[in-house]
């Protein structure tokens, strides 16, 4: 969509990292932005640092009643949401399926998969009725590749997000609503810290993304372009295509076996 006509953007997981970078990029283009985040403390800090340029709501994306309430409050304050970004997520815990605590698996799916559905479901009808708008869902390169050992639950959730986004794009297209899936590679965010905090685990400064992680600001610009051009897939690390290509050729082999030509 043409961002100069966007009245209001709503971004989950918006108090830091990729969500905040997109919030800043949209705000810089004059779009009023609501950032929603589960971490009230981080939210306050971020809002203060942006001195009135962003608005905020505390939101746990697992809580459907809260979604409806926050949507209504945010729209009452800033007007109809034209841009929705379902971005909140947690990091993999690096434990294999044989060893993972089932509660940890459930939390991953509830936040990284169902949390995204909850956002689409909360705003989908309104966007469709208004016949305008754009939705961006944050998946991961782990949603289009499998080269991530110890991250099975995360990989499963992210694949599901890519798929849901593809379906949603097809469903919203006749109504003039654009839909993109963002598949970031390694970005220098505080995902490790925010995940530990949410799980009630000790947080320390050593929780950093590995060296080579990209600047989130870059993602903000890519998402802006993605919205403006209604790109189906927004990628940050195109070099990862080689991993997706391996999957493509495994599929090609299996389908050839089954008689595809």
């Amino acid at each position: 969509m043409d961002l100069s006509t966007a009245r209001h953007a709503f971004i989950t997981g918006g108090a830091s990292g990729i969500g905040l970078a997109v919030a800043d990029a949209l705000a810089a283009r004059g779009v009023p932005v609501t950032i929603a985040d589960i971490d009230a403390e981080e939210l306050e800090k971020t809002l203060a640092s942006r001195s009135g340029k962003l608005w905020g709501h505390v939101l746990d994306v697992r809580d459907r009643a809260a979604w409806a309430r926050v949507r209504d409050e945010a729209e009452a304050a800033l007007g109809p949401v034209d841009v929705l970004m379902n971005n909140a997520g947690i990091a993999p815990d690096g434990v294999s399926f044989s060893d993972i605590d089932p509660a940890s698996f459930d939390r991953m799916i509830a936040i990284n998969l169902t949390g995204v559905f909850n956002g689409m479901h909360t705003f989908g009808k309104l966007l469709r009725e208004r016949g305008r708008g754009h939705v961006v869902n944050t998946a991961s390169t782990a949603g289009i590749t499998f080269s991530y050992p110890g991250a099975g639950a995360y990989t499963a959730a992210k694949h599901a997000v890519v798929s849901m986004t593809e379906t949603f794009r097809a469903e919203m297209e006749p109504f003039g609503v654009g839909v993109s899936v963002l598949c970031p590679g390694l970005i220098d965010t505080n995902l490790g810290k925010s995940t530990a905090k949410l799980k009630g685990e000790p947080v320390h400064d050593g929780m950093r993304m590995p060296p080579g992680a990209a600047d989130p600001a870059m993602v903000g610009d890519l998402v802006v372009k993605g919205i403006e051009q209604n790109q189906p897939y927004i990628l940050t690390h195109p070099g990862r295509w080689k991993d997706t290509e391996k999957w493509q050729s495994a599929l090609a082999d299996a389908f050839a076996q089954a008689g595809a030509n």
């Binding site: 782990a142 110890g150 099975g152 499963a156 599901a160 798929s163 849901m164 593809e166 379906t167």
Partner: peptide, 30 residues
């Protein structure tokens, strides 16, 4: 679980893509 071709299958396809992701990760682990 490999491609979405029709509308109205959001949940089903998400679940099946999830199974695809889970299974590919599981194979590596096992």
């Amino acid at each position: 679980g490999l491609v979405t071709v029709i509308t109205g299958v959001g949940a089903y396809s998400a679940a099946k893509f999830g199974v695809t992701g889970l299974t590919e990760a599981l194979r590596t682990e096992m």
